[in-house]
Simulated scan of single mutants.
Amino acid sequence: MTQKIRIKTGTVEETLLLPLWGRAYETQKSNPRLVDQNAVEIIQQIDYDFSDIEKTQSMSQHGWVARSLHTDKMAHGFIEQHPEATIVNIGCGLDTTFSRIDNGKIMFYELDLPDVIALRQNFYEDSDRHKSIASSFLDTQWFKDIEVRDGLLFLAGGVLCYFNENQIKTFFIQVADYFESCDFYFDSLSPMGMKFAKKQVLKKGGMGISMDGGWGLKPVNALEKWDKRIQVINSIPMSKGMKQGIPFKAKLASTIADMLGVCAMVHMRISHC
């Protein structure tokens, strides 16, 4: 019997399990909105008690699936316009986006802290078009490792909210200074959404990690005030178009959250034009 991979509890590693479990759980439903067999296979290789997550995260699970569906749609659209696109998955964790969107031509980078990349290597091997970079995204030395042949897209799912506004602003400006043009696609939480995430997700999910500070964004168009090269292309409420097939209680809660602007998917463009 193959020995399972142990996860360090009370660390960032543990939080990586939340969206991974969400996708795996969805995949095993009789009528899944998202099929992610890779997530199922990874879950089966991990030595971890998921019972607390399963008991407490039914609402958040819909959000994790919605985020993946939005991201897949965005990435597919970008790849249609840029068949040899370069995509950088910031704070990749145990994400499996590449396996769902690869067209056989794109260049895809998985970027995360060294411990996370080491954990990923239990499940993935790098290839010529799918490479890992072990670094904080704030340490921009990794910029020089990115090969851009066509368009450049940065994905950042469930990561930017862990940092403060000044860190994110500085990072976006550094990207604008280094790269000629690029697109960003990420989820944003309002200040209200930040409070919900800390209480309902990390604490109730049995996560031992604390989440002090963080970046709450509202309104989304405030990003354009940071630098004239930043343009918000659109902002979509997280649950928009994602309510079909979910329980009534979840539909009601997600509708209210969308009305209050709790969480959104943001498409931002950096351009020198």
Rank of each mutant, 00 (worst) to 15 (best):
L252V: 14
S136A: 10
E147R: 14
W142G: 04
L202T: 07
I236T: 14
G77Y: 03
S99L: 04
M265P: 08
I173K: 15
Y48W: 12
L18D: 08
V116P: 10
P83V: 03
Q3A: 06
I168N: 14
N103V: 00
T9Y: 01
F186D: 08
M268Y: 08
I168Y: 07
W142A: 01
F78N: 02
E180C: 03
Q3V: 07
F123W: 08
Q37R: 11
F123M: 11
E165I: 00
I106Q: 11
A197V: 13
L18P: 05
T96P: 09
V262A: 03
T15C: 04
D177L: 00
A176D: 12
S235Y: 07
G93Q: 10
K198V: 02
K29L: 02
M238E: 12
N122E: 08
L153Q: 01
N234D: 14
I209W: 01
S254G: 11
K251C: 04
T96H: 08
G93R: 09
N234C: 04
Q81H: 11
R229N: 00
T56H: 13
C182I: 00
L17R: 11
I236V: 14
M211L: 13
S30H: 10
V12F: 09
M74L: 09
I101G: 03
A85Q: 12
S190M: 04
E110V: 03
L16P: 04
R23N: 07
K228E: 12
D115E: 15
L153S: 01
L34C: 12
V201K: 06
S181Q: 14
K169C: 04
V35Q: 15
Y185R: 01
N31K: 14
